[in-house]
Structures are given as C-alpha cells and as structure tokens.
C-alpha cells in the first residue's frame, strides 16, 4: 500500500512538472503566457514576475511552483482577477454532482442490465443497445435527449444548473456510454465466472439461478470492471466539458473550456494538476477495492 501511495505521489509530481514545462515552452514570454487574453499593464506584469519569481533562477521558480502547489496554492488568474483555487472551487460542486450522479447511474444501470439480460433474446437486444451507446458521441446523445424530452415533451429544462430537474438529462447523457461499456465488461465477466467449477458446486447445493449470479458470479465479474475506474474518470471529466456546454450548465468543464480558449494558463495548469490528483485518488481506491473483492490478493 505504501508503494501505491509513493507511485501516486510520483504521478502527481510528473503531472505538475509536465504542466510547468508546458508553461515554459509556450511561445513568447512566460509573462505573456500567464496573462493570456487578460489585461496587459505594467502593474500586472510586475505582479506576475513577483508571484512566479520570474526574476530568480529557473530552478527556484520550479521548486517554488511545486512548493505552492503542494500547499494548494494554484496561483492567480489574471484574466478573471481571482485566485485559481477560488475559480475551480466555486465551479467544483456542479461538476462533482454531475459526474458522481452520472457515475452512480451508469454503474447501477450496468449492474442491473448485466444481471437481468441473461436470456438469449434480452441479451441480443441489450448487446446491440450497448454497442450503439458506446459508439455514439456523448454530445449527440445529449442533443437527442434534449430535443425529445425538453423541446418536444417539455419534461426537463433546456439549460441551466438549478435544481434536480436540470441534472437529469446531463447525468443520463453521461451515464449511458459508461453503462454501455461497463455492461459489456460485467456480462463477459459473469459469463466466464459461470463456466467455473464453483458455480456447478453452488448450483448442486440447491442455490437458485439469481442467487448464483448475485452471490457468486457477479463478484468475480467486478474485478475487471474495477480496472476501468480510471477510464471512467476520464470519460466523466472529458464528457463534462462537452455536456456542460450542450446543456449550458456551470462547472469545471466550462471553466476549462474558457481557460483554454482564452489562454488563461494558471487555470489550465491548475486543472491539469487537479485532474491528476483526482485520478490518483480514484486509482488508489480501485486498488483498495481489489483487496476487498479478492482475498487472494491480500498478503497474509
């Protein structure tokens, strides 16, 4: 476990360093890169040079950057005239709500589908559906859902980030591709587990089919699914950028998009480091989940 933590720290350090190098490698003066599309006055330039220690040697600049990042100080956005931590923190809640509800919905949907569609015909229908969901870009799913449920039926608001009703369509849009892939992985895992001898033993005890699935096979199928947790995070974050735009929701996606298009480097740097942080945390959790699911991986 200690090794896992150490690896996580190395990943974080590498992400921060890579982001910092990208800043240095940006065309033109580093000060210009940090200002981005913001107001360019001698006063602001002096502020930037002082904050980033641009008048000191490069090593000091770099170490200082790491030191500040370690303390959660991600610098200041000169475009928005606010500390970066505040910019991200303020928009974190809507994105977390969206990503976590989409993640939970996707996982639940996948579990239900993988267990209930065991009959050949249900399986065929579900497999086709999964394939369609996996291969459709999320924004297209979003637009279709919008036009049906908002424009035609008027069940949900078209845009905005207020209240539960505005969360439903974006969450469903993000959850569907996730459910598609996870169902495929889970079903494959269940199929393989059902071919194992312990399933014959379980059935020979008089255990019902549903119980064989839920109590025995599903747990085995979870192992490959847990591996996908890192991928899941990528889908949810990358998806959030697009989905928040499609549905006009505030959130980290909007912040990232604006920062990139207006070349607000401090915010971009912070998003990269923050993403790496969440990624490391989730993968560490996945490793813990392995140990909980499979006792064979625990060291006695």
């Amino acid at each position: 476990m200690l090794r896992r933590l150490a690896t996580g720290l190395v990943v974080l350090w590498a992400a921060a360093t890579a982001a910092y190098l990208a800043l240095l490698a940006a065309p033109g003066d580093t000060v210009d890169a940090i200002i981005g599309d913001g107001a360019d006055t001698p006063l602001i330039r002096a502020q930037i040079i002082q904050e980033w220690h641009l008048d000191r040697p490069a090593v000091v600049q770099y170490l200082d950057f790491l030191w500040r990042a370690l303390h959660g100080d991600l610098g200041r956005s000169y475009l928005l005239q606010r500390p970066v931590a505040e910019v991200i923190g303020g928009q974190l809640a809507p994105t977390l709500t969206l990503a976590s509800s989409a993640g939970v919905l996707g996982v639940v949907l996948a579990l239900v589908l993988a267990i209930t569609t065991r009959r050949p015909w249900a399986r065929r229908v579900s497999s086709t559906l999964e394939l369609v969901l996996v291969s459709t870009p999320p924004f297209l799913i979003g637009i279709i859902l919008l036009s049906v449920f908002s424009f035609r039926l008027g069940l949900f608001p078209v845009s905005g980030g207020q209240g539960f009703a505005s969360l439903v369509l974006p969450a469903v849009t993000l959850a569907l591709p996730v459910a598609g892939v996870l169902t495929q992985v889970l079903r494959d895992g269940v199929d393989r587990a059902l071919d194992e001898p312990f399933v014959v033993t379980a059935r020979a005890r008089g255990l019902g089919e549903r119980a064989v699935l839920v109590r025995h096979a599903l747990r085995h199928a979870l192992l490959p699914a847990v591996t996908l947790i890192g991928w899941l995070f990528g889908i949810l974050l990358g998806g959030a950028v697009i989905i928040e735009t499609v549905f006009g929701r505030p959130g980290l996606g909007q912040v990232t998009l604006n920062a990139v298009t207006s070349e607000d480097m401090p915010v971009v740097l912070a998003v990269v480091v923050f993403s790496a942080f969440v990624y490391v945390v989730l993968n560490t959790l996945a490793d813990l989940a392995y140990l909980i699911i499979d006792p064979r991986l625990r060291r006695s």
Partner: peptide, 30 residues
C-alpha cells in the same frame, strides 16, 4: 433435491469452492 437429496463433490476444491468466499460461508450457504 440438490444438496438435500444428493451432495456433489468435484475435482479440485481450489476452483470448486468460490475462491472469493470463506469456506465457512460456502458451507453455511447450504
């Protein structure tokens, strides 16, 4: 009938018992 009329013992208990469950849980299930 399964388990109450006839019990089945297969070849290798390493794979014939659920490797993710304790043997106590497997016996208790019956």
């Amino acid at each position: 009938l399964r388990g109450s009329f006839a019990g089945l013992v297969l070849q290798d208990a390493l794979v014939s018992l659920d490797p993710l469950r304790t043997v106590g849980a497997e016996i208790g299930e019956v």
